[in-house]
Structure formats: structure tokens, C-alpha cells
Design a protein around this nucleic acid. Structure first.
Lengths: 219, 219, 219, 219
DNA sequence: GATGAATGAGCCTTCATTCAT
DNA sequence: GATGAATGAAGGCTCATTCAT
């Protein structure tokens, strides 16, 4: 506990004071953990503080209120999610088919698709129905995502000479990912991550002439 | 609401005491309403009692605890859901194609697919991740449902001479319905019930050679 | 449960309706049991009704309130206690020495000195300090008892030519019985009833020249 | 009570926050007062908090539950009782006769023998019969006490050449003190503290050849 | 007389929030 | 910045009491 007299260059000791943003990130990460473990309804400020290894007074200092802490946590998850698929798509190049595959697989990126994050997302979804302020961040995660996957479906149709309804197809792909996520959270004996990926690819293949037939799901 | 000065022959006057099961049903219905409106986390016993027009003591009298009231509510929803699709399938006859259509559309039956029930389901899903006792009732609603839709997919494949993976296809159909439900709850400007049905049919058509191409979604 | 059509002369079946006083006695006996088991603080009307095998509505019907039920229970115990030592003394004849012995042993009469009754007495004592209405019934059980044991001590002094203070001696004998009772209730490994009797006799012998030296404690 | 307009240098102002142990002691003292006044059964957390001049939330903060608060109060009384007679005996020197006198009189020490403490003890005794967890602390207050008074009785017998049963004698002395305490609590018109002391000494004299015949009870 | 559903006051407890140090 | 004691609103639960049947 004692810190006075600490020798210079003791890097393993967490500093007594940290930059604002680091503390905030630390607390948000703790919030995700607690929501995942306890559920939304039974998440308390003390749990969050204890998980972060901080005093509970600090949580209010940095986030003003529990309401705000939870909202900021959702905003963080939402931004992280957005950044993740944006990066994946950017890396995929200009080809719609590559972009769609990148988009579909992005949700299974290990930084995003952790048990804690899946649980936290589920918890926020459950509350969103009665919390207008959560809705536009939870509904489909991300309006830009919806717009983009629709665009891709249109481009795929054009490229492949198909005429399926891109709105419905993109919706099915989106909710399939969502549903697979929920399965991973909820099912007593859930299937593997590879099987989850395979399921999403199976859906995409059904609408786009099997173009993803040679994908390796283990990646 | 007022009853004073009730004219002679006012048969609508609710009896002060009711049979146990009727009161339980009444309280469960109130619980669904409150969860839908307030969300799981902010549902209180007083809300439930007030919504049912009863004293809060009665809720504990019939359900012993809040925990138990919520569990019984989930069990009720689960049983209701199960009974609904079972009835729909039974009515559809022996043809797998008719049975699958009946199954897919059953979830949109007006008795099941009300805003209150959708919201309540969402709320329970959100909690299920951290409540093992909820999981087997929420996971996929219903293990029998999963088994049955898989069987139907196998039969459809046989009949239509297809060889898609029935596990993955049935999973996609299931989560598509789930996802469409969540959309109806969560999206700021959700689409219509017909569009919801159409989306599910679109998914089924993609896997089963368009056999449902002539379905009327408005029914 | 069914009682209709009961053949004449079925004495083993408790009658649907009982005389007032029998029901009251039945409920008081149940109250003693419950207080003994649960303690005063955690005794509830429902416990009493359940122990008596009756509906809890009946308890209020017969006793108007919990407060009154408890008071009447104490009055019953008090009257029973009084009647017991009165009868014992009456049976002992006119000799003060025999009367004192009868009085001291009366408290160990099997009708009085049961675990349930001892516990119930302890519970009422504990409450008496803050309940003026209990005090004169609990303090020394019974003012007549105090007066009588003092009289006996005076008579014993006269007969034996002693001059100990009869007030203090009678007080010591009284509280010794009380204390032995409490021990039987409270001590983890209490001593036997014979040892309890022996202890009281030992006290009496100390003040009255060993006149009770040949008493058989096992009786 | 009022503090507004407090003059400069008002040192009596209680600090808003206190060390944990001080607050605990303060709350235990308040609990004793409330039990004494209301009895065990009607003691509420709010009463305790109000008596201590603190918010009710603080009681749970320091004691977690009512159950625990009451248990810790009993443990405190028990420890206090033990420390009191230990100190009295230590001060009395090595002579068994002096030690026994010190032990018998210790229970009337003004720090121990206050109306509030006597009432609280009575209340706990009353509950102990149905609370195993209270029993070993209430039974005879203190197993060490029992052992010690027995030892003293043996030593007194040896010194005085007597052969009374030390177990029964020590038991009578112990329950006489207990009974006198209960009298002070319970009797409508209880006798004085001096008379209480005199009664105990009278008992001791009866068993030990009047060795305490010259004691001044007023001390 | 007897029943048990219904009521509501009162209690214990939790927990978000404040604030002196 | 950081801490943790302190507050008090709010909620779950118990249980004595009532009352229609």
C-alpha cells in the first residue's frame, strides 16, 4: 500500500494518479466485465470500482453518475465496434466481394468477439427496448454499418447479375451475425467460433451464388 | 375505473377475490407489461402491483419473491411460445413445406408477437447471459423448436433434392426470426410486420429453391 | 378433510366446530410451542395457526390481536403455574417443612417443567423488562407465591429456632429455582432434572439446618 | 443539538466522520439503549440509528445486517462482563476469600450494572433459548466464569474445612446473582442495589461459615 | 364458526451520490 | 486526484389484520 520512499524506476507499480483518459478507459473496461458477469440489472458502482481496483468515489468523479457511466460504456463499445469493421474493410481493398467478406468476418475479430463483450452487448440490447437513449446505438450497432452492408449487397448484385432485394438480404446477414453472437452467449452448449463463421458464410453464399465457397473459417 | 354509483346490473365489476391461477395469470400479464415498459432492471414489485390494480402484498402472496415472479413470467412466456408454434404446425398438416411455413409464420401470430411480449423477451435475453437459470428457456426459446426446425430442413432437402447443411440452415432461419423480432423492438423506425414476414420468407426461399415465392405476407 | 357423511360415533375425528374455550386452549398451547421454538421475536400468527392446524383467520377471531394472544398465553402460563404449586402445597398437609419441600419441588412437576414451557417463560421474561403489562406476571411469576414462600421461611425459622432474614432467604430460594430453570434452557449441556432438584434442596438445606438432607431427588 | 451560529472555538462539535471502531462502539451503545427501552422484539435499525444520531444507512455500513449488529452487541456485552470480573479478581489479591467476594460484587460494578445493560442482558437471555448462536454467550455469560467460581468454592471449602458440593454451591451463587439481576429489571418495585448485594452475600455466608458477615453492602 | 385471499404499514437492506479529509 | 465514511431515497419482503364467502 505504502508508496512513499518508492525507489526511482519502479515501473511495475501503478502510478497513484493517471491521466484522465486512462482512468476512464480502465473504468469502462471494468464496467464491461461487471455487466458481463452480473448482468445489467445487478451491476453496481461498487462492483465496477472493486473490479478496477479503485475506490468507488472515483467512479463518480470521472463519470458523474451511474447512468452516464453505462451510457459511456455503450458509446465506447459502439465506437470500438465501428472502428473494427471500418479497419477491416479498409484493409480489404476496393473489391465489394472482399469487402463483404471482411465485414462479415470483422465481428469475429478477437478484440471484439470476447465473452465479456458479447455479454455486455446482450445486456445493453435487453435494456435498449425501454431506453430510447440506447436504441440508436444498439439497434443495429451502427447506422453506418447498415448503410454500408446494403451498399455492398447492391454492388454484389450488380457484379453477379443477381436481383435479390438488397435491403432484406443485408438485413438477414446482419441479424444472422447478431443471432450467432447471441447463441454464443446464451446457448448452454454453444458451437465453436469456426462454426459461427461458417454459419454466416453459409448465409452469404445462399444469396450470392456461392462466391464464398472456398473460405477457410478457422482463420 | 370508478365504481361508485355503479348502475344496477353492472356485471363487469371484478370480484375482490379470484381463484389462485387467475390471479397468477393476471399478475404475470402485468409483469410482462411492466418489463416491456420499464425494462428488466427497473421493474419493481410496486409497478407490477399497480399495473394489475392490486396491492403489492398480493404479489408476494402469490409468488413469494420478485425473483420467482420473474422466473415464472419467463416460464409462462416460454410455454406460451411453445404452445403457439406447436398448434400452428399441427394445423398445417403433414407436408414439410407447409409445416415449415407454418412454423416460420407462427412467431408473428398476433397473440405472440405483441410489442409487450417482444420487449419482455428482449429483456429476458439480455439477462440470460448472467443468469444460468434463464438460459435454457431463453437460449433458443425452446429446445424442441430447434430440433423440429432441423428435422424440417432435412425433410425439405430430401424433397427438393438439395444438400445444404440442415444444421446451419435451420440456425440461420431461427436467428433471422429472432433478429427480426429484436429489430422490431429496437430500431428507432422499425419496418412493418409484413416486411418482417417477408424477410423471413426471403431467407427460406434462398435455401429452399424459392418454394415460398408466392406467399402473401399480409395474412 | 371431508366430514360430511361421517358416521355417528367417530370420535377420532376432530369436530369442525369446537367450544370456544377448547379452541382457545388449543391455540394457546400452539402459541407456547411456537414461542419455544422460534423465540418471542420471531413468533408469527401464521406459525401459531399452522402449529394448531387451523387457519390463521381463526386466531384473530378468537383473540382479536396478536398482542392479546400473547398476553393471554402468559396469563394462562401464570395461572397454570399458580394452580400447580397451590395444589402441591394443599396436598402436603399443614407442616411448614413439608409445605416448603412441596413448594420447591412443585416447579419440577412434569406438567409444568417441560422444555416448551421453560422456553416460553424465558421468552416472556426477556420481554417483560420493556413491557410493563408483562412485568407483574413474570417478575416472580406470582405475587402470592412470593408472599407464601416468605411466610414459610418465617415459620421454618420459628420451628427450627433460626433467625436468618426470611426475605433474603426466600428470595434466594426463589431465584435459585428460576436460575436452574434458565440453566436447563440455556446451557449447551445442561444437567439433569434430578441435579436441578438437588441444587434447590442444597440451597434450602443451607438455610434450614439441613432438614431436607434425606430427600430423594429422583422422585 | 443546534450548531448554527456556533461560536468560535466550539470544540464539542462531534466530527462528521469517526474511526471505524469508535463508530462501531457508538452504535453498539445505542443498540443496548434501544434494546433496553423497546425489548429485543421491537428493536429496529431506525431506532438504533436515531438513538445514535446517525443515518440508518450507516448502521448497515458498519454491521452489514441487523442480525450481525445484535450479535456483535451481545459479544461486546459478554466481553465487557468478562473483563470486569477479571479485573476485579486481579485487584483482590491471591486470597480465595477476597477473590470470591470481589467476584460476587463485580457484577454490581456501576459500569456493568446499569439499567440499560441489565435490560439488554435479559432480552438476550430471552432469545437465547431459540438462538443457538446466542447460547454460549448467554448461558452463564461466560464459561471461564463458571470454572473460576467453582475453583474458588473448592478452595474455600479447603480453607474452611467444609465439604459442601462445590458444583452446586457455585451454581447457586451464580444463579442468585443472575436472579437478583432479573429482579432488578423485572419487579414492579424492585429493591435497592445494596439489598441486592446483601442478598448475594447472604447466600455466600450460608455456604461458607459466615465469613462475609462484616461486609459493608453500600460500597 | 371457519377459511384464505387481500391489504398496507413498517421493516431491513441496497446502493447511488455527496463530501470532508 | 483519491479515499471512504456518511446520507437517504427506494425497493423487496413480512406479517398483523380485515372481510367476503
Amino acid at each position: 500500500m505504502e508508496q512513499h520512499d518508492a525507489p526511482l524506476d519502479a515501473p511495475q507499480d501503478p502510478p497513484r494518479t493517471m491521466p484522465r483518459d486512462d482512468r476512464r478507459a480502465q473504468l469502462i473496461e471494468a464496467t464491461i466485465k461487471v455487466i458481463a458477469k452480473m448482468g445489467y440489472a445487478r451491476t453496481t458502482m461498487s462492483d465496477v470500482a472493486r473490479t478496477a481496483g479503485l475506490s468507488h468515489g472515483l467512479v463518480n468523479f470521472h463519470f458523474q453518475s451511474k447512468e452516464n457511466l453505462l451510457l459511456e460504456t455503450l458509446l465506447f463499445l459502439s465506437a470500438e465496434y465501428h472502428a473494427n469493421w471500418q479497419a477491416a474493410v479498409a484493409e480489404a481493398g476496393a473489391n465489394p466481394q472482399d469487402q463483404l467478406l471482411a465485414l462479415l468476418m470483422a465481428d469475429f475479430h478477437p478484440a471484439i468477439c470476447t465473452p465479456d463483450r458479447l455479454s455486455a452487448w446482450s445486456a445493453f440490447w435487453g435494456e435498449a427496448a425501454s431506453r430510447p437513449i440506447y436504441q440508436d446505438r444498439c439497434g443495429s450497432f451502427d447506422a453506418a454499418y447498415n448503410a454500408f452492408i446494403e451498399t455492398l449487397c447492391v454492388q454484389m448484385n450488380n457484379e453477379l447479375g443477381l436481383n435479390s432485394d438488397p435491403i432484406r438480404v443485408s438485413r438477414i446477414l446482419r441479424v444472422t451475425i447478431q443471432g450467432v453472437w447471441l447463441d454464443l452467449m446464451t446457448l448452454p452448449n454453444a458451437y465453436s467460433m469456426s462454426e459461427a463463421r461458417a454459419t454466416v458464410i453459409t448465409a452469404a453464399n445462399a444469396f450470392f451464388s456461392n462466391v464464398f465457397r472456398n473460405i477457410d473459417f478457422e482463420a
